[in-house]
Design a binder for these strands. Structure first.
Lengths: 217, 217
DNA sequence: GAGAATATAAGTGTAATCACCTAGTAAATA
DNA sequence: TATTTACTAGGTGATTACACTTATATTCTC
């Protein structure tokens, strides 16, 4: 029996190393590579062609979405499993839209991670118990959410994540290599779309689970 | 050689289970219990008297601080190692003030976690490479921060709650019937005490799960 | 009573946010 | 092809936040 070849993309070294350890410790799995960045994961996947990719999207969900979509083109045989701390539906839906075959949260059990890997490797789809409990039905076709005034663009999502981290416009501009005026334009549009009066309210909205799901994307 | 008896307090099941697995997989360690809540960790420690406690303080730092302090009274023989995603000095200092013997971040390596457990079990102190790189010197005696450097007064708590709601200084002043300059003075003191750079970071800190108001920081 | 902590609030100045405007390019869509 | 949307980025001006200083009255504690 061939071992399932796995790539791990997870930004926290300790988590990455422990997962690598326990998966390599299991005769069914073999971690062929690991990295801390989702973009790097795409490059590695293009060369190593792992059968399963564990993609953490916690800190930079947008990068995770993009990377998943890119990965599907450079290595369509690799099945991506999304991993995050939260079970926000929009993240789950976005990941499946991007081509992911599975999604588990960090409240899943260790056995569920094994199950997920085996399921997607066998050509199936998998979501963890926590997300199923929230009514996510993997058998239903992806719903086309209507675009409305409350939906943010990818750039706006990315910038709102930066705002949430306490970054200033100047710092965001440097980080994303765009003009501070562009950042300010996006900020203004974000506040307008979500109908909040300032960045503090935006962060409060993002941090309130229901609010984030309901309004952010 | 007796195995080192370990208690794990970590709110994410997947992380908790993987750590339990790899530690139990090592002949030097034995995980005697694990829990998802720092308060529960105190109760367990009082009975099981673990030699080392891995205390995740990521999502609920304040609970983690209090639990560490309580743990030192109900089970002084247990050495606490703080664990978090971030290497914020405030958290590190707070944890050592509360009686922790070690601190590692989730950017540490797996070996560093082992080292930390062995070090505190042997009666020493330990901080991970990432925190040492930021200039934290464990050999120095604990700096006596000005008495209430980390504790907010009632007024400051009241005002920080208003900030959280997205209220501006002017609005807070009107609501509390005080001068806007007084509000600004309080805001400045709040940011200084909690060592955050702006109100957004303050709100993020407050919104980290149970918030801080309950525990008056 | 002396000292410390708290709450109050003024001044001064710098930096950041926010509102509103215009406007070009590129990509997707009708 | 024409239109829309997203992303870019400049200008202007008002408002707000933040840093730092000084100062007074009160309250609590040593």
């Amino acid at each position: 029996m061939e071992k399932i070849r796995i790539l791990i993309a997870e930004d926290h070294k300790l988590i990455r190393e422990t997962w690598t350890f326990i998966l390599n410790n299991d005769s069914r799995f073999s971690v062929v590579a690991s990295c801390s960045d989702s973009g790097e994961a795409v490059e590695i996947a293009a060369v190593r062609k792992p059968e399963v990719v564990l993609m953490d999207i916690n800190m930079m969900p947008l990068n995770g979405f993009e990377a998943t979509a890119k990965l599907a083109t450079v290595s369509p045989e690799s099945k991506v499993i999304g991993l995050s701390f939260y079970s926000e539906m929009l993240f789950v839906k976005k990941m499946f839209s991007a081509g992911a075959k599975g999604y588990i949260t960090k409240n899943s059990s260790r056995e569920e991670m094994y199950e997920a890997i085996l399921a997607v490797h066998a050509g199936g789809l998998f979501v963890c118990e926590e997300i199923r409990a929230q009514g996510f039905d993997i058998t239903l076709p992806p719903v086309n959410e209507p675009a409305n005034a409350f939906s943010l663009t990818n750039k706006e999502i990315q910038i709102s994540q930066c705002i949430r981290q306490g970054l200033r416009s100047k710092e965001i501009a440097d980080k994303l290599n765009i003009s501070i005026k562009t950042v300010e334009a996006h900020r203004h549009n974000i506040l307008r779309k979500l109908q909040v009066k300032n960045s503090i309210s935006l962060v409060s909205l993002m941090n309130s689970k229901n609010g984030y799901v309901k309004y952010s994307f």
